[in-house]
Nucleic acid binder design. Structure first.
Lengths: 207, 207
DNA sequence: CACCGTCGATACATTGACGTATCGAATACA
DNA sequence: TGTATTCGATACGTCAATGTATCGACGGTG
């Protein structure tokens, strides 16, 4: 059977992708060399070229894996938050949702590269577009549900509200890592702002 | 005199920086080669090494020039808008201010590189910090003045409001360039949102 | 247990980017 | 106009990264 062979193959690919993620955060896509990636993964370049045709090939694979992982995490976070039924304050819902997102330096840098690369290359842009659309949908659902649970209705378009919150989230991460060399972003300020903002942008729902 | 000599020198540096800006937008900091930059500037590598010790050296110079240019443009835009005395609606003030900022693809990509680089390298981070702080101050002044002129008072911290608007601005650019390969970002949606947002986040000032 | 195929390591040739050293030309100054 | 200096071009050596080709080892299979 080729099962075991391909399983081994899948395993080394995982290790290569994990290593690529780290190296990429350190030195950027262009700065990362195949050798660095292999070294960190515990392989030599032979293993690499046995699995990927080029660095670009691996990058694309990494992007797709990142996208899938993010969406899975996002979706499970949404389900955790929404299906509990026991929704507390609007602060709690969004707060726990937001803090369930990865906020570490490596993640930020990888996705920063992701965006930049996507703006330049159309092949990547397609992958990103799907991630983007799904993220919007899931995030929008949470906001929507939170408002309903609190008996409020947005005074602006749900889509705009979603974009707004995502924008705040991204800017907060960026500012955090620009301002300090901590490994985790400090989100306390944002966690206070978001509920305030949502209250300001909604009104009691007529019933 | 050495005046003319240094003037010539300054001129080639300008051309090198202009070229670097474009190449950098195309291929990123790491991807850009000294040769590419020189070629686009109409020089050979000899001219480069006569002016800069390394690519990093030039990058730092470019960042400082970009920073200075941005702040000058920002400041003159603020003066234009505020000293007219004839402030129309809140939409007009912020609208004209926001649209006075550069919103082209090259600009976006260069500053995307800028941020990513600053997160990784502390020397760059210092330059960025100054840009960031000044931008905040200028932008905050505009918001403040706009509110006063309209007889409204923010219900949230001015600093938070500023961060909010900048976050929207940045996210709008990013989304625009991710979504299409246009050379100029479409800002119409944002230009409608911002006044709405500011109204929602302020109340009539007691007088 | 022996065979076969896959996977990863090693060695090699090639490319291209870098930085230096040297040369020629343009420009300033007497 | 002659001379000195500065700036940019050319040519070179060096080094690092790439991709390929080959070899050995390990694992599945009859």
């Amino acid at each position: 059977m080729q099962e075991s062979a391909t399983r081994r193959r899948a395993s080394t690919r995982e290790r290569l992708l994990d290593a690529a993620r780290e190296v990429l955060a350190d030195t950027g896509i262009q700065g990362a060399t195949v050798e660095q990636i292999c070294e960190r993964a515990g392989y030599t370049r032979g293993a690499f070229y046995s699995n990927y045709a080029s660095k670009d090939d691996l990058i694309l694979d990494l992007f797709m894996r990142e996208k899938d992982r993010m969406l899975i995490a996002l979706r499970s976070a949404v389900e955790d938050k929404l299906e509990g039924g026991d929704i507390g304050s609007i602060a709690h819902v969004l707060d726990r949702f937001v803090t369930s997102q990865p906020t570490d330096r490596t993640w930020f840098l990888v996705h920063q590269e992701f965006v930049t690369h996507a703006v330049r290359q159309h092949r990547i842009a397609d992958v990103y577009a799907e991630l983007w659309e799904q993220t919007h949908r899931e995030f929008g659902d949470v906001i929507d549900a939170a408002c309903q649970a609190l008996g409020r209705r947005l005074t602006i378009d749900l889509r705009d509200a979603t974009r707004l919150l995502i924008a705040i989230f991204d800017a907060t991460l960026r500012d955090a890592f620009l301002g300090s060399d901590a490994d985790e972003a400090d989100l306390t300020a944002m966690r206070e702002q978001i509920p305030t903002l949502l209250l300001a942008l909604s009104e009691p729902a007529e019933r």
